[in-house]
Write a protein that binds this DNA or RNA. Sequence first.
RNA 1: GGCCGGGUGGCGGAAUUGGUAUACGCGUUCGACUUAAAAUCGAAUGGGUCUCCCAUACGGGUUCAAGUCCCGUCCCGGCUACCA
Length: 750
Amino acid sequence: MNRYNPLAIESKWQKIWEDSEAFKADEASDKPKKFLAEMFPYPSGAGLHVGHVRNFTIVDVLARYYAQKGFNVLRPFGYDTFGLPAENYAIKTGVSPKVATDTNVKNFRNQLKKLGYAIDWSREINTSSPEYYKWTQWCFLQLYKKGLAYQKESYQWWCPVDQTVLANEQVENGHCWRCGSEVEKKKMKQWFFKITAYADELLECVDELDWPEKIKVMQKNWIGRSEGAEIDFETDAGKITVFTTRPDTIYGATFLVLAPEHPLIRELTTENTKEAVEEYCRAAIKKSEIERQESKEKTGVFTGAYAVNPATKEKIPVWVADYVLMGYGTGAIMAVPAGDERDREFAEKFDLPVVEITKTPEKPFGTPKTTYRMRDWLISRQRYWGCPIPIAYDKDGNPHPIPEDQLPVMIPEVDDFKPDNSGHSALAKATDWLKVEIDGEEMTRETDTLDGYACSSWYLWRYASPHDAAHAWHPEAVKYWEPLDVYCGGDHAVAHLLYIRFWCKFFADEGKLPFREPIVKLLYNGYINAPDGKKMSKSKGNVIDPLDVINDGYGADTLRTYEMFIGPYDQDAAWNPRSVGGVYRFLNRCWTLVFEKEIEKKSKNLNLLHKTIKKVTEDIERAAFNTAISTLMEFVNELYKTGASEEDLVTLAKLLKPFAPHLASEMLEQLRADDAWPTYDEEQLVEELVEVVVQVNGKLRAKLAVPVEDLEDEEKVTEMALSDGNVRKFAAEPKKTIYVKKAKLLNIVA
RNA sequence: GGCCGGGUGGCGGAAUUGGUAUACGCGUUCGACUUAAAAUCGAAUGGGUCUCCCAUACGGGUUCAAGUCCCGUCCCGGCUACCA
């Protein structure tokens, strides 16, 4: 007897698909289009994990479903290859990041092919390839030209011994992770993208997105718009401008508080408070924002200066405290201890006056002002393995853009990737590369690279024309394919998904994109945890390798179908090896029906067949993949009981194909059928005898088999119900009846 | 602290618009096949004092009818965390 042999079937079909370029999207087509993508992965040395498989399979199910429905489907793939792991690996082993990345990409590609994904391989992209990052640099220059890429002094962690900038996570308890010396905050010039220029539009458009509510709320909170006013307070050293959302509470403002970084502090401080203020500010600035917020215990110091409350004309003291942040509003607040909990705490601790707000000004004080929590996007990275910023500096240190015809600015080859005392990335070691001539003037290149999020802020548009040497994206190609219909991922709820929206709006304003939102629908999938319910991690030794599942004999179809069956796609789920076996049994039963069992002449249950088509179609449309599969299981269970006709089996194979494409292809080949998505016949959904549930006082007491033509006749149904012995027992004296035809339910109130 | 999810059998989960709670799968038990086992096939499977009653975290409420809606409480997870 033959057996279902997934590995043989799968390699057969994978070869057929590869040879025929089965998933190549049509360049131009009259067919309606669907463009689907996952959040492209960072290809780590460990290869695919089960979380990737869940994410990519969701996209694959939809891509195959829409292709079967006759859409022109674009389902490309790419790799987000810049990043710290490759650089650290290079430091450790001396293998260049490029070589390591190429190896990892190759491995990923092979693994993706083993999963049978319907990827258009002619559109593969890789953010660290010069053909790609040339255009990342071009994007930077477009933003630069419009003043949306700019330099600003900003405080950075600095190790005075190693003479290098440190990332937040490289600072441990205020000490350098390498040498242990106490770190400093140093003002350094950094590049920023002015995302705040689009704050309002980014906020307002959120509501219209077909995205999970959770993500929309997170984006709104991140942008954090507050309406309020700026109010000036006069002091001997000049005016202090504060931002408040409650200008109406000004009669209760009994003191001012400045952030420790506030520029007016020096002038405000009097002789006798100078030492204390300076020490407080020095200590506060040194702390990270995280450390500052760790303790809610209020600290602060009096400057010795007073300001005049413009409403009460009273003199109120000016304090410095680290609960006021320089980066928000004006870095100064008017404290209203009677109205604000934080101000009250501060007032209580330092014995400052608390005045009840008895009056509100008739004409609001100050100038109306809107502020945002969101800050501009810091994009400078002192790292080697990233996209070089296409800027050079003249002798006076002024930045100049690299002319577009000189792009890409290639990553220079270096032997030593280790950070050193220069405070620059390893790019600074490429001495020949550093020198560049622009308009006859000798200049020095920028040695910082771009935040990796810049590379992923435009890749969805590159997919439309991935090999275009003349454009970042071809205008006609994006017009046809974009915006992306479905995006699927389980990470980057704010950063990436906000940055790509920002670039979309910018390039729309530039006339380069004919839409203002890049992603129509977002599916945000949950994590897959280890069988013990904990996060999978190498150190815990509880990692499930998807390739092991395939090679153990289950095959890719079982793996894919299992990960879709594991639970609702947007919830976390724990891996269950036994359930994998259950899904394998199901596929085995499908195979057996076609290859081992006698095929009936006629379908025994057309009603069930058409119901199954309807349910599976609707479930895929609403991304309820787990119930789509359970519907197919019920169908197969029924076919085992009644026998299966050719029509039953062709339909089963077609409905199964998005989940288990290899097996379904094998079944369809055997049945000599195409894979066109089946449609259901409304008439076949109607049953001759309809089950009507009879309740008495809401409790189930009987089930009636009512001829479909009598379903409209409430009187007749009621009569049937009351002739039932059990119903009569509980409803000897019916008071009234409620007949819900849609629910096929009769409730008798007795 | 704030916001957002969630709590249903031994387990993962289903119930889409307030209308038969526990679909489907796992596990377990029994049976068939087999010398035997595996695989496969079939049957049963929330609990109980079992014509009926009780169960969707807990306590109330609305309704002819509540897992679903409302009020309160508890627990778990995620995000966020002095943003004036």
